[in-house]
């Protein structure tokens, strides 16, 4: 830890800020005792960076370990730590990243080493960019990736082989989320949310389609506490659409209090009724879903305003009273 640098400022009981040298986009919080946060740069060039900072909840500080920073080809479209680090059989954090390929990294005490590069392209030099991925919590050997080539690929990351690749949509797939061991859902530029069951690959089930045909859906968050619910966001829309898979095609709620496009959503890790959203209006809003929506819509229960557009948001599973947001070159941890 001697080469750690003290990077945080603006400390208070409820807010910790980290200043990065780069614009930030991808972000993940580890569930391991290391309390690490991985941050991916968003630079419009080939070489990008991933930094790993550790969060000390006692002193409310964020420290970057320069030994744990590494180059990443293209900006990572998503970063995610192993969802079940205790069950991973490794003492070190495992980090996955998507971009040109899916990659796994082992975050050791003083260095990061690549474990594998997963490329599903049969032919040599071409691989359609990956837009996102999700690591299956129940079955951690499974990672599902989504791609602009309209497919989703399910990897067995332990064996390093493709379990299956599905043409999931008619247009680019923007995001993917696991529901349970063999069930995932994806959203696409074709405007649909589709559920897939790996035990029945004959069919997918469309459970939502954006109201204006072909309005792309960008992100999907499946409520891990109550799998009936998922949330999605539309391109250039201030709405968070809440879906109940029991009443397909009709959203159960639309949260419309952002004053700009919504960019990121995250369900509370321990509550089935709370969701946080962040958007171009610089606001992070926490919503409590009521049982019945009033005529005037649903208001957020709390609000935080950042100094610029919020691009990313992660609700810490290990420390559920902290939410991390990323805007411009800052990452902030907010205590809820």
């Amino acid at each position: 830890m001697e080469n750690s640098t003290q990077d945080s400022h603006l400390r208070s009981e409820t807010l910790v800020t980290y200043d990065s040298p780069h614009t930030l986009y991808a972000m993940s919080i580890s569930s391991s005792p290391h309390n690490r946060i991985a941050l991916g740069s968003f630079l419009e060039e080939f070489t990008n960076r991933v930094d790993v900072v550790s969060f000390d909840e006692q002193t409310l500080t964020l420290k970057r370990n320069p030994n744990l920073s590494f180059d990443h080809p293209y900006p990572p479209t998503k970063l995610m730590f192993h969802p079940n680090p205790l069950g991973s059989g490794k003492s070190n954090d495992i980090l996955a990243s998507s971009g040109d390929y899916l990659r796994l990294w082992e975050v050791k005490e003083n260095c990061v080493e690549p474990i594998s590069l997963l490329n599903n392209s049969k032919s040599s030099e071409f691989c359609a960019p990956l837009t996102s991925f999700d690591w299956n919590e129940v079955e951690p050997r499974r990672i599902g990736t989504s791609s602009v080539d309209t497919t989703c690929t399910i990897w067995d990351v332990e064996r390093g082989v493709v379990e299956t690749q599905l043409i999931a949509h008619d247009k680019e797939v923007h995001d993917i989320a696991w529901g349970e061991a063999g069930v995932f859902a994806s959203v696409s530029a074709d405007g649909s949310v589709r559920i897939f069951d790996l035990r029945d690959k004959e069919h997918s089930t469309i459970i939502y389609e954006s109201p204006h045909p072909d309005t792309p859906l960008l992100r999907l968050a499946w409520n891990k506490q109550d799998l009936r619910y998922m949330a999605t966001i539309l391109m250039d829309s201030n709405k968070v659409v809440i879906l109940d898979i029991r009443s397909p095609t009709m959203p159960v709620a639309e949260l419309e209090r952002h004053r700009g496009s919504v960019n990121a959503i995250g369900w509370a890790p321990l509550s089935c009724r709370h969701i946080c959203s962040g958007g171009d209006d610089g606001q992070a809003l926490i919503w409590e879903l009521p049982t019945v929506a009033g005529p005037s819509g649903i208001d957020p229960m709390s609000m935080f305003t950042a100094s610029s557009e919020i691009n990313q948001l992660q609700w810490s599973a290990a420390k559920p009273d902290w939410i991390a947001i990323a805007f411009a070159n800052k990452m902030q941890l907010l205590k809820v």
């Binding site: 082989v161 299956t164 690749q165 599905l166 043409i167 649909s192 004959e202 069919h203 997918s204 089930t205």
Partner: peptide, 10 residues
């Protein structure tokens, strides 16, 4: 590997 195309049902 084989690429599967599930039929979407609405």
């Amino acid at each position: 590997h084989v690429v599967v195309k599930p039929l979407p049902r609405t």
